[in-house]
Each structure stands twice: as C-alpha cells, then as structure tokens.
Computed example of a mutant assay.
Amino acid sequence: MKGYLKREDDFTTRSKHLHSLTDEELKARFWELSEKLVDPMLELAKTHTTPSIERSILLRMGFSSLEAQPLVDGAMDRGLMGKGVGHLVYKMSDETKLPIREIGLEMIEGKHWDRLLEIFKGGIK
C-alpha cells in the first residue's frame, strides 16, 4: 500500500510480561484493565445525561412519549436537567405524597417547578 508503513509484529516482545501469569492471574489482569477502561465512562454517566436518556427513564416510570417531552423541556428550561427528570418527578411525589404519575401530569401543566427550584437551589448553572 502506497503511503503506509508496514508495522512489524512485536506481539511476542510486548506480551513477555504476561507469559509467567497463570490463567487465573491473566483473568484477574483482564478484569483490572477492563475496569480502568470503564471507570471513566461510569463517572461520566453519573454526572451527565441527555434528553433522550431522561425521556427513556420517564417512559419506564409510566409516562407516554408525549408526556415525557414537556417534562424534559421543563427541566431543561429551568436548569434542572442535571438532577434527572425522573428524580425531579419522584422528589415532588415524595414531598407531596401524591402518585408519581399525578405529579408528572401536574408538572406538565406548569405546577411544582418553583418548589423544585427551591429544593435544588436554582439548578445547575
């Protein structure tokens, strides 16, 4: 291939440090390295969300897609998206002792958002 350098196979050299390991030690090493790869993704998932993820959570909480969208929009408009829209609905349900679905429908009508802003100190700036 023109313009490409052929890479010499150095697998044997690079894998020498693994030759003395048992199968169990190799398996442990594999999972250790796998965790190092996945840990940053898990951290990112804990602190970041998307409208799509939030709609999906709301669907699992019993809301329709037509109901989920205004809830997500309401959270985004108020800087509360990072709190998790499902969490917002749950928090208001817990505070008011009303069913989750009922609170969500009231939130779609514009209710409870001021209280959520108080609870979460104005959302994420």
Rank of each mutant, 00 (worst) to 15 (best):
E32N: 12
L98W: 07
D73T: 15
R29M: 05
S34V: 14
V38F: 15
E32W: 13
L98S: 04
G82I: 06
L33P: 03
K36G: 12
R78S: 07
S65F: 01
P99V: 06
L59K: 11
L44E: 12
M92D: 02
T96G: 00
L98R: 09
I53H: 10
L88C: 02
D94M: 05
G86C: 02
P70L: 10
K46T: 10
G86F: 00
L21Y: 12
E35D: 13
V89N: 01
H48I: 08
G62T: 09
T22D: 03
D77W: 06
D73W: 10
D77H: 11
S64G: 11
T22E: 04
T96V: 09
D39Q: 15
K27V: 07
R55C: 10
T47D: 04
M76L: 15
H87S: 04
H48P: 03
V89F: 03
D77E: 14
T49K: 00
A68Y: 05
R78H: 04
M61G: 04
L37Q: 12
K91H: 08
V72Y: 01
P40F: 10
H48K: 14
I53S: 04
G79T: 02
E43T: 13
P70G: 09
E24L: 15
V72N: 05
G84K: 00
T50R: 04
K97S: 12
Q69R: 06
H87D: 10
F63L: 13
T50Y: 12
M41P: 02
I57H: 03
L66F: 10
E95Q: 14
S34Y: 14
L80Y: 08
V38E: 14
G82N: 13
P51I: 02
K91L: 02
M81Q: 10
L42T: 14
E32G: 12
M92A: 08
L98Y: 07
L33G: 02
E54Q: 03
D39H: 13
G74C: 14
M41K: 12
G82F: 08
D94L: 06
T96S: 09
E43H: 11
P70Q: 11
M92R: 06
K27L: 11
S93V: 09
L42F: 12
P40H: 03
V85T: 03
P99F: 06
R78Y: 01
K36E: 15
E24T: 14
K46F: 13
T22W: 09
T22I: 09
L37A: 12
F63W: 15
H87L: 05
A75W: 00
S52R: 08
F30N: 13
H48W: 08
S65K: 06
G62M: 04
M81S: 11
V89D: 01
S52F: 04
E35Y: 08
D73C: 03
T47A: 10
S64P: 00
L26D: 02
L37C: 12
K91P: 01
L59C: 08
Y90V: 03
